[in-house]
Design a protein around this nucleic acid. Structure first.
Lengths: 125, 125
DNA sequence: ACAATAACTAACAAAATTGTTAGTAGTTAA
DNA sequence: TTAACTACTAACAATTTTGTTAGTTATTGT
């Protein structure tokens, strides 16, 4: 649980006020989280499908990350009706869907420089 | 220091292999980090200028975050020559510069939904 | 000479995140 | 009816991140 009197918490709040960038980063930071969003966008929209994609994640941790993404309204839980067995589906909201292309950009950025693109500094004129 | 035998570390490595997205997120996660990148891009490129922009950050923490950004080649430290007093300047690399527009997108995304844009789910057809 | 500024570091403590263990409840297939 | 599958939760422990304290070195302004 978060301590509301800690410097850590105060600094987080400070950054949230400086720019929405910081709250955005906070929502997608955290082990597994953005990968879960991406996997759901690719169709792995059920608990057990996500477990298959991420074999190292424990059920407890997966449930926790999903709940946090739900708290931030990036996804919602929906009961699947008319199916046997009835199950739970995770569906990205419009907010979550809008995030996906940004995650793709981040991915491309990472690939570019991992892939050997030279890193340099623009010369000062 | 990182424990190289922990589940936490192994899971991090697993995600890094799944997709570059996860290493990208790891590079920009962390208190202050993306705000520092953005502030440098806006011209606050010296230690004391960053301290002015982020009055709640301690020197130790700022130095640490800058070093981590340097480790990931997002910025480099440069001595400013021909100036009195001679100082240190933080300069974004091309990798760091390429990150800035993505951070701006994240910021816009955050603003949009904080600003009251309705959050909904596309109806299943 | 002395205080102030700039740019740090090491060692430690506090807090937060991540992972583990041991459970629950409802359905289904053998 | 028993085992397996799906989808969880609470309490706790391990690990990591973040912040604090107390220094350093070099330069500058008074």
């Amino acid at each position: 649980m978060r301590k509301k009197e800690s410097t850590n918490f105060e600094n987080e709040q400070f950054l949230f006020k400086v720019c929405e960038l910081n709250s955005a980063i906070a929502m997608i930071s955290g082990r597994w989280k953005s990968q879960i969003v991406y996997s759901i966008s690719q169709g792995s929209d059920r608990f057990h499908l996500l477990q298959q994609e991420l074999p190292n994640i424990s059920e407890t941790v997966l449930a926790r990350q999903l709940k946090e993404l739900e708290t931030h309204a990036i996804l919602v839980k929906q009961e699947i009706s008319n199916t046997v067995p009835a199950g739970i589906q995770y569906v990205l909201t419009n907010k979550g869907c809008d995030l996906v292309p940004i995650l793709k950009n981040l991915c491309e950025w990472g690939k570019l420089y991992e892939g050997g693109k030279e890193i340099s500094v623009a010369p000062t004129i």
